[in-house]
């Protein structure tokens, strides 16, 4: 097989004596969606925050395209073309969609002034692709609906040519139609060769959208399985009991 896009090798991180992530190893290939499953507090968000630069791991190694990567903060992660859609969306509510989309990466004129008009035009372009109904370009995002806010967060991740995309429960706050839209987007990004980590509670959705699923319990990795080889019940059993299904256990 080719080189994995991302290798998370033997990652550990603890907070005040609690081992939040305990020697976990997961990898991700280009054009692949890997689902991360587990109860609340299983450590999936914490694991992924080591990759997005929000947390720093205690031990372990991250490799991007086979090379060891140093990620100490979100700025480092962006340099490796890692984009994250956080569960909380991480939007500045007082700013408009354009300001949020370009936050930290504003387009500036030669005099160092931010080019709001250019950025708004770019925002209109990408939003017309992601969410054609989106019209509130100059309202603060606090005035937007949950789905509209979500599309701003997604647009921000997609616009800057992400190679590795992390989605933390991207459909948690969405209605059925918007959920379908996100699912279609994931399929499209996959075709473009992105690698996607998808953190989700919904076993059904993971089975539909993902190629493989990594299940975590109490900070440890229960196992990584191909979703075609397991049933939804198998996945549930892994989440609840913390054991791999018998027909796969070697």
């Amino acid at each position: 097989m080719s080189t994995p896009l991302v290798e998370l090798n033997d990652i550990s991180i603890s907070f005040g004596g609690i081992q939040a992530v305990d020697h976990v190893t997961v990898d991700l290939y280009p054009g692949e969606v890997v689902g991360l499953l587990g109860h609340n507090g299983a450590g999936k968000s914490t694991l992924i925050k080591c990759l997005s630069g929000a947390y720093q791991m205690d031990s372990g190694e991250i490799k991007i395209n086979g090379k060891t990567a140093t990620i100490n903060n979100p700025r480092d992660a962006r340099r490796y073309n890692i984009e994250t859609i956080y569960q909380t969306l991480a939007l500045a509510d007082n700013l408009d969609a354009t300001a949020n989309l370009f936050l930290g990466r504003e387009i500036v004129s030669p005099f160092g002034m931010v080019s709001d008009a250019t950025m708004e035009a770019e925002t209109r372009k990408i939003m017309s692709r992601l969410n054609p109904n989106f019209k509130k370009f100059s309202a603060p995002v606090s005035a937007l609906s949950g789905g509209q806010r979500q599309s701003v967060a997604i647009a921000r991740a997609v616009y800057f040519n992400a190679k590795i995309l992390i989605m933390d429960e991207p459909t948690a706050a969405l209605g059925p139609q918007e959920t379908r839209m996100v699912a279609e987007l994931i399929q499209e990004l996959k075709r473009q060769g992105l690698g996607i980590f998808l953190i989700d509670h919904d076993v059904h959705q993971v089975k539909n959208l993902c190629d493989r699923a990594a299940v975590m319990k109490n900070g440890q990795l229960v196992g990584v399985v191909k979703v075609d080889e397991v049933s939804e019940d198998d996945l549930l059993a892994m989440i609840i009991l913390g054991k791999k299904p018998e027909h796969l256990a070697a």
Partner: peptide, 22 residues
């Protein structure tokens, strides 16, 4: 019109989001 100003308002609106935006 400057990044500095933009970051001031972003940080005021949501410090965590500002930090995560690099």
């Amino acid at each position: 019109r400057t990044r500095f100003g933009r970051y001031i308002f972003a940080t005021g609106g949501n410090p965590d989001a500002a930090e995560l935006s690099g």
